[in-house]
Structures are given as C-alpha cells and as structure tokens.
Computed example of a mutant assay.
Amino acid sequence: MAERDWERLGELAPELRVGSVAASRDGFGLVGASVEPATGTLADRLRARRAQLHRVTARGLERVYEGPGWIQAVDCHGTLCVALGATLKPVGSGSDYHLLVSTDGGRKWSVRGPVPAPSATQVLAVSAEEAWVLGAFFLGRTADGGASWTEVSLEGERHAQAERLRRTERGVAVLGKGLRHTHDGGATWGRETSGNARLVDVDGAHALAVESGQARIGERRGGEVRWLTPLPPGREPLRLAAAGSVLRVLTRHAEPGRGVDPCVHQSTDGGRSWATQKLEVGPHVDVAGPYGLGLDLRGRVFGRLS
C-alpha cells in the first residue's frame, strides 16, 4: 500500500521564520517559528525576535505560545511536549537557552527556566520531570522539570551535527558511531555497535543509518544491527517510523546542491521492498508513527495527521 498523499492543513503568516517541526505519534504536530523586525542591525533584530509555537491537527493550525527569542528544537512524547527556546545573550556573542514544557499535548506551555548550555540544538522529552539537551561539546539533563540541570559525562566529544538523542526501550540513547544508552540518568552507559555505519534513528527493533553514503535500515539484535535491503541510492536518511512490519523512512537528497527533495519511503514487508512518495515541502519536515508534518518555502503547512 503506497503512502497516502499529505493534505494542506494551513499557512503561517508570511513574516514568520520556521525553525523547527515535530510530528507526534498522537496525531498532531508542532511548528516552532519566530518573527523579527524588518529593519535595524542584525543584533537588534535578533534581540527583538518573538518566538511562536503552533499546534497543528487535521483541522488546521493554532498558535499556542508566544515569547522572547526563537524556537531551537521541539520534541513530543505522548501528551508531553518540550521545546528549546533561545535568546541572544545581552552581552557578548552566543545564545541563552530556556526550556518550555507542555503536559497536555502542546495546547498550553510553561517556561521552566534557563538551560545552562554553551550550545544546544536538540531536546528530548522523557517525563514531566526529565528532559535532555544536546549541543556542541555538551550533553545535559534535568530531573526536576527544568529547575536545575546537570552536565552528563559520556566518552568522546559531543557533535550535535553527527549525533542524535533518542528514547529507546533501554532508556535515553545517543546515536552516532553506534548507540550508547542509559537507564540511570547517565551514571552508566551500555553500547550497541553498528559497524562502520552512522546511526541516525531508532524505533523499537529497527535502526536507520548511513554507511558510505548509502541509507540503510536494519534490525537491532542484541548488541548489533542486522542490515536489510538498502534504501534507494542518493538519499540522506533523516527519520524512522516503525509499526510492526510497516516501516516509514524520511529522507532528503544526499547532495546539498540538488536541493532538499524530501521523500517518504514505505515498506509493508519489514524492509524487503520499498515504495517512495515525494513530498512537496522544504527542509522543515518530520514523521512519527503513521503521521507526518512539513512546510514548503511559502509557509504552507502540509501533513498526514488523521
């Protein structure tokens, strides 16, 4: 069965700049955006930025939060949603970060305080009390809803462009050259190997990776991965959504000069064969479970949320 076409669900105001998108397994999505003045110096415009979060369902869009700065990242885990907000530092260069939390599926949001990270580009929701952030040379965790943060020690240096934060059956995981997981807040870490492949995503018993420029999907067995039929060539893997024998993989073109060209590849036989659907959206796109959400360069919102 081919992937169903995504429907047009609405459109953002033209002055909004999209920063992040997240699809939820519960049939909704979130769009993090910001608006800034059209005139002034770059620093003045950044300081005047206003962040917005929009909740998206099959019925359309609803703005659910507005505050200072911009939205760096969003994540959904059931009815728990977290967002990483950022503002320009008042003095010097760089950004200050703060955690936003919703416990009702993204309808209402509260600011939970600063995130003392020198750099942060990913956020992961675990529970109403626990969240993680990942940035350049930084991995941090809160166990009290954002009131305080602890920098987590893990072998090697953190590279947010090459690593991903994910939830697994063994706890929080950092994906990259293999998978390292912890069930005790980072006090101890286990490991799964992936050969020469760089892991991009995991969902249950399946893993998504890239090896020598080839997107691959495999079955996690013990501490290793058994690779299945490769995905179409020339694609960079982004996201994996698995439900039994149905696998969905979000990819973009592997050559940056060729444009984004996002596609969803679906297999209904456990990864032995694939059907591909091209998406008419830009770089801000996500899939989760049977759902998906994306925006084109004009700010039009498309998705499959029902």
Rank of each mutant, 00 (worst) to 15 (best):
V115W: 01
S273E: 13
G32I: 00
A209H: 10
A128Y: 04
W149G: 04
S148R: 13
Y291G: 01
M1F: 10
F138K: 10
R180C: 05
E157T: 00
S34Q: 06
Q72T: 13
P14N: 02
P116H: 03
S20F: 08
V18N: 03
S212L: 10
L228P: 07
L175E: 08
D203G: 11
D44I: 02
Q72A: 14
R221T: 14
G78N: 12
A117G: 07
T168I: 08
D286C: 01
L247D: 10
Q161H: 15
P68R: 12
L80N: 09
R167E: 13
L99N: 00
R300D: 13
P118F: 09
G271V: 10
R180P: 08
G10T: 09
A197P: 01
G85I: 03
E155R: 14
A241D: 05
W132P: 04
A147I: 10
A33E: 03
E211C: 15
Y65A: 06
G292A: 14
K278Q: 13
A51I: 02
R298W: 11
A243V: 01
V225R: 07
A48P: 00
G190Y: 07
E155M: 10
R164H: 06
G106R: 02
G218S: 10
S93V: 12
R298E: 15
V115I: 15
E155P: 04
H183S: 14
P68W: 01
V64R: 09
V91R: 15
T268D: 15
L124I: 08
L12I: 09
L12V: 11
T121S: 09
F28H: 11
L99H: 04
W70K: 02
V249K: 06
H159I: 03
E236S: 14
A51G: 06
V202I: 15
G289T: 01
G69V: 02
G271A: 09
L139D: 04
S34T: 04
V287H: 03
E192Y: 07
P230W: 03
S127F: 13
H253N: 15
E130Q: 15
P237M: 06
T229M: 12
L297F: 09
V133Y: 02
G257H: 01
L134H: 02
D104Y: 04
D269W: 12
V101E: 14
G156Q: 11
G186K: 00
D75Q: 10
R167I: 11
H206R: 15
E157P: 00
G67R: 00
A288R: 08
R226Q: 09
R304I: 03
E255Q: 11
R47I: 03
P232R: 02
L16M: 14
S95F: 11
P256C: 01
G213A: 06
H54W: 15
T193A: 13
P90W: 12
V225N: 03
E236V: 07
S212N: 13
V123M: 02
G156W: 05
V285M: 01
R216P: 04
G222R: 09
A83E: 05
A207D: 08
A73C: 02
S273K: 11
A117M: 00
T182K: 06
L297M: 11
G282C: 03
R220Y: 05
D201V: 07
E11G: 11
G113I: 07
R248C: 06
E236A: 13
